[in-house]
Amino acid sequence: MDVLIHAVVGLHIIGIASLLGGFLTQMKAMGKGEARMVPAMLHGALTMLVTGVALVGIHQSQGDTINTVKIGVKLALLVVILGLVYVKRDEENVPAPMFGTVGALTATNVFIAVLWV
């Protein structure tokens, strides 16, 4: 079961990398007001959602204690991120504050995962 958990965590990290990488590649365009939500951002957010739910399910099936408040906060942030990326995915230019919000919420989600014990 440990191999499965590690594989799903690896996929979760790939999702984070895709979402954050898509954001970082558009930083220069954001400064010019030409940023857009690239497909990698949508796919990364969806990967994070699916693998995050899978991780919670795997841990619950093993009887592990789960910090439901932490998971709820992370899920809420991810739903907002996913909503913003999904709604603006077809627009050529996304307003800089909205685009920056996606990056800030993604970074916040990473720090919650790492720092909240």
Results as ranks from 00 to 15, higher is better:
Ser61Glu: 13
Val102Lys: 06
Ala96Pro: 00
Leu42Ala: 12
Met27Asp: 02
Leu42Trp: 09
Val73Ser: 05
Met41Ser: 03
His59Thr: 09
Val8Trp: 07
Val53Gly: 02
Leu24Asp: 05
Leu4His: 11
Asp2Cys: 06
Gly83Ala: 08
Leu105Gly: 01
Thr65Val: 14
Lys74Gln: 13
Met41Leu: 06
Ser18Val: 04
Pro39Asp: 07
Pro97Ser: 08
Ile66Phe: 08
Ala104Met: 10
Ile14Tyr: 00
Ala76Val: 11
Gly52Met: 13
Met41Asn: 06
Ala76Met: 13
Gly10Ser: 14
Leu49Asp: 11
Ser18Tyr: 03
Gly22Gln: 07
Asp90His: 11
Ile71Tyr: 07
Ala17Met: 10
Ala107Ser: 09
Ile5Ser: 07
Gly10His: 03
Ala107Ile: 14
Thr47Glu: 05
Pro39Glu: 10
Val85Ala: 07
Glu34Asn: 12
Leu105His: 01
Asn109Val: 00
Ile112Ser: 07
Ala107Leu: 14
Lys32Phe: 03
Gln62His: 12
Val117Tyr: 09
His59Asp: 10
Gly52Val: 03
Met30Trp: 01
Ser18Pro: 00
Ile5Thr: 11
Thr106Lys: 02
Ile66Ser: 11
Glu34His: 15
Leu4Thr: 10
Val94Gly: 00
Ala35Arg: 01
Phe99Pro: 03
Ala96Trp: 08
Asp2Met: 13
Asp2Asn: 15
His43Ala: 14
Leu42Phe: 13
Ala17Asp: 03
His59Lys: 14
His43Val: 13
Leu46Tyr: 13
Ile66Met: 14
Met1Cys: 07
Gly31Phe: 11
Gly33Arg: 05
Asp64Ile: 02
Gly100Cys: 03
Glu91Met: 10
Gly44Pro: 04
Met41His: 04
Ala104Asn: 01
Ala76Lys: 08
Ala54Gly: 01
Leu49Val: 13
Met48Ala: 10
Pro95Gly: 04
Val94Arg: 00
Gly21Phe: 02
His59Asn: 15
Leu46Gln: 06
Leu84His: 08
Val38Asp: 01
His6Leu: 09
Asn109His: 05
Leu19Asn: 08
Lys74Val: 05
Lys32Ile: 01
Arg89Pro: 01
Leu42Cys: 10
Val56Leu: 15
Met37Thr: 14
Glu92Gln: 14
Phe111Ser: 13
Arg36His: 15
Gly21Asp: 09
Asp64Val: 07
Phe99Cys: 04
Met1Gln: 10
Val94Phe: 00
Leu49Ile: 14
Glu92Pro: 00
Ala113Pro: 01
Gln60Trp: 08
Lys70Leu: 09
Gly72Leu: 12
Asn67Met: 08
Val110Lys: 03
Ala45Phe: 04
Ala113Met: 06
Gly22Val: 04
Ile58Arg: 06
Gly22Asp: 06
Asn109Met: 05
Phe23Met: 05
Leu55Pro: 10
Ala40Tyr: 02
Ala96Glu: 06
Asn67Leu: 10
Met27Val: 15
Ile71Cys: 00
Ile14Val: 15
Thr65Arg: 10
Val38His: 02
Thr65Asn: 09
Trp116Ala: 02
Thr47Ser: 07
Met48Ser: 02
